[in-house]
């Protein structure tokens, strides 16, 4: 029994291939516009830059797949920096404790997001936005308005060190990605994310404890956000309010959505990785071309809306992609 390649790929495969093509086009464009960008060192630098966004969007993508959105991730990242740096004060012996405390904060605050969303009718957008605001107030109070402390050498190495020419943080990212990929594919806890997003009532009727699964999903998103904040802190080295923030809320949603994830459970974590690479590359390309924050902001808005429009079922993007790949040969035949 032979199945055509296009059909065997399915929705996810088709989207991934398309995203890889987009990534290649962007790379080619930057190679043409800006000299030296296609060198290995520069490509690895792009990979390193994309790590904080990548980690955040792994958690964000799980939330999106479950039908929600997490707008507290940006502030959770800052929280990780402020609290983490303060606890470490540049000392390695305090690093483990700091990382544990910060991780616990991420899990608990994220879990509260999930619990309130599951237990009440508060929409995820409102709940997580409110949580972001609370977290921001909390870390401002914590540090009394002036962030103190710095990151320990070990965490610095994780955030900005290299093995040979290979930066370390992308390797950590790949590890986290592997773990979450296993979670999303091989555990019922992870699988239920997709089912809850697609039809949460049917999920409940099929014996899935939907409330606890939502708590878990948002807790993971919180945990990923603080991990991402720690890695970014390791790169920056000191306590600083500029770690994280609003930009990561938008960009992590954008990365997930660009990666083909819908709010009704269709997609996968691989898309989030490709999505964050594309967003990072696009941002760095625009920086190199001298396009300012205003232009980037417009780009984000356009990309997100366009992608959501494309991936919703009515437009049947997958059908179009199928036809596109099938008929590619025919299109080049001169008429």
């Amino acid at each position: 029994m032979r199945i055509s390649v296009v059909r065997k790929l399915g929705r996810t495969g088709l989207i991934y291939i398309s995203l890889v093509i987009v990534l290649c086009v962007l790379l080619a464009a930057s190679g043409i516009l800006i000299p030296d960008t296609l060198k290995a060192t520069h490509l690895l630098e792009i990979a390193r830059q994309s790590v904080p966004l990548g980690i955040t969007s792994l958690g964000q993508t799980l939330v999106i797949l479950s039908g929600g959105i997490d707008l507290s991730v940006g502030e959770m990242m800052t929280l990780a920096n402020i609290v983490g740096a303060d606890l470490m004060r540049g000392k390695d012996e305090m690093a483990l404790k700091a990382i544990l405390v910060v991780s616990l904060l991420g899990l608990v605050l994220g879990g509260i997001n999930g619990w309130v969303i599951a237990q009440t009718d508060v929409p995820p957008l409102v709940m997580t936005f409110g949580m972001g605001s609370i977290v921001k107030g909390a870390y401002l109070l914590y540090c009394g308005g002036a962030p103190k402390g710095s990151v320990s050498p070990i965490l610095r190495t994780l955030g900005s060190g290299r093995l040979g020419i290979v930066p370390i943080s992308p390797l950590l990212f790949l590890g986290l990605f592997g773990v979450l990929l296993f979670f999303s594919k091989r555990t019922t806890w992870g699988r239920s994310t997709f089912y809850i997003g697609n039809n949460s009532k049917a999920a409940y009727y099929a014996g899935i404890p939907t409330k606890w699964r939502l708590v878990l999903i948002y807790a993971i998103s919180g945990l990923m956000a603080v991990f991402s904040g720690l890695i970014l802190s390791g790169y920056i080295g000191i306590a600083n309010f500029s770690v994280g923030g609003d930009a990561y809320n938008m960009n992590s949603v954008a990365a997930g959505v660009v990666g083909g994830n819908t709010f009704n459970g269709q997609g996968g974590l691989g898309g989030a990785v490709l999505g964050s690479l594309i967003i990072t590359l696009l941002t760095s390309l625009m920086t190199s071309l001298g396009i300012g924050q205003a232009g980037k902001s417009v780009m984000q808005g356009v990309v997100i809306t366009l992608m959501v429009a494309l991936y919703t079922s009515q437009t049947d993007l997958v059908g179009k992609l199928k036809r596109f790949y099938k008929e590619r040969g025919r299109r080049h035949v001169p008429q």
Binding site: R191, F194, Y195, N198, N199, K201, Y205
Partner: peptide, 16 residues
Amino acid sequence: AKGLFLDFDLYENIAL
């Protein structure tokens, strides 16, 4: 409303 995950395939709908 209460039974199916329309966007998923037969395997997933049956296995869960």
